[in-house]
Amino acid sequence: MCDTCGCNITPGNRHLLDAPAHGTAIDVLQGLLSANDRAAEHNRTHLNQHRVLAINLMSAPGAGKTSLLEATIDLLQAEFRIGVIEGDLETENDARRIRAKGVPAIQISTGSACHLDAHMVHHALHQLPLAKLDVVFIENVGNLVCPASFDLGHHRNVTLLSVTEGDDKPAKYPVMFRGTDMLLISKIDLLPVFDDFNPQQVQQHMRHLANNAPIMQIAVRHGAQIDPWLHWLREEYRQFQEGLIHGNSPRPRMQNTAATSPAEATPRYRQVSTHTALLPP
């Protein structure tokens, strides 16, 4: 979000600018996550300088993020030099699983924090040999709520939804699924058992969030079925490298689009610079 030009004034908040105030009122109009967003931009610049594509993997606990990474590493290690940042409340278990594949992995133990933020990822990036990597996967804390709110400086949001969770998760967690660039329906081999899960329904719920992100079905046990995912990754990597030549890098679909997108029908009302606009007494 831009905090300086007044583009975060939306039809929902512009009336507040005209409200009377007592004391010395300071108009701020700054995102509550602006410190995180600044750190995220720093991370993204750092990644772009090293030409490293960063993917933020999010899901509920147990949807299969680490298993997907293991299968992906097995199948792509010859093509891409991969690094992994693992976020969990406790234990090094996931990082150990990844390191067993011969891939550098940094474990962030968040303690009680329910999400990764840009500062944590910044520290982890400095421990990874970025000059020797092509793709970094950031496995976020298993949680469908909080991780959706924090830009980490990555390029794409990938969300996993396993068939055991039910097909209405996008309707229940709209913030997470609205910000998804790619939705993977995982454990699709369990569909015969969980036959009330309808992949069409998932797509319908995603459209109701005005999100047309691709939806792919995958399974990683007993012979990985992840070809469409690998194809998507290769294509994202190719586009990423191509974009860098022209000075562009992809950004994840994030929240706060009401405040950032060029709203054709919404005139911008007033320029308010951070911290300085004093209201008349």
Binding site: G12, L29, Q30, G31, V175, Q255, T257, A265
Partner: peptide, 14 residues
């Protein structure tokens, strides 16, 4: 296109 609804803003301090 979302016009409003995802605001997370510090509007003003007194």
């Amino acid at each position: 296109q979302l016009l409003s609804g995802d605001e997370l803003l510090l509007l003003r301090v007194v």
